[in-house]
């Protein structure tokens, strides 16, 4: 019983944080320092470890009850690893304020040809983004 409770709690804690955190992604409102989410991942890991230490699983059924904890542990580690990847290598930017836009040609999503000359006479916010997912 202890194993089921701790194991389930591990997955629940991690899953709940994932849902709360990633629901903010489409609107771009993720916190700069997701302290709560990080603590919750550690709580999930602690619960998974506790399920083993306290519950001392033996036999197929007990290890089966550890499956949620395994998912909780894996997801927590993925979340923490992802956060370590967050920094971008800025500093190579080839333009500065006061410069003229570097001229380029590209194709738009509707297949039309685009050239920076098209922007002359227009105020523009040029955004580089990571792409759809």
């Amino acid at each position: 019983m202890t194993i089921v409770t701790l194991s389930g709690a591990s997955l629940l804690v991690v899953l709940a944080t994932w849902i709360v955190y990633f629901a903010k992604v489409p609107s771009g409102n993720v916190p700069a320092r997701p302290v709560g989410s990080i603590l919750a991942q550690f709580a999930g890991i602690a619960l998974a470890v506790a399920a083993v230490v306290v519950g001392q699983p033996s036999g197929a059924a007990a290890w089966g009850a550890m499956v949620p904890a395994a998912f909780g542990l894996l997801m927590a580690l993925v979340f923490l690893w992802l956060l370590t990847q967050r920094k971008t290598p800025i500093g190579d930017l080839k333009v500065a304020v006061g410069d003229t836009l570097l001229s380029f040609a590209a194709t738009s999503s509707d297949g039309a040809a685009f050239h920076t000359d098209d922007l002359l006479g227009k105020r523009t916010l040029l955004k580089f983004f990571r792409g759809g997912w």
Binding site: V25, G28, V30, A32, Q85, R86, K87, T88, P89, I90, L93, V95, A96, V97, G98, D99, T100, L101, T116, L119, L120, G121, K122, R123, T124, L125, L126, K127, F128, F129, R130, G131
Partner: peptide
């Protein structure tokens, strides 16, 4: 390989007036 989130504001003559770049890809 992908773009670093970057915003560049340009006037009618193509002059760059403002640049903002994210050092954290999660943030815009």
């Amino acid at each position: 390989v992908m773009a670093i989130p970057t915003s560049i504001l340009v006037d009618e003559r193509g002059k760059i007036l403002w640049i903002d770049q994210s050092d954290d890809y999660r943030l815009r």
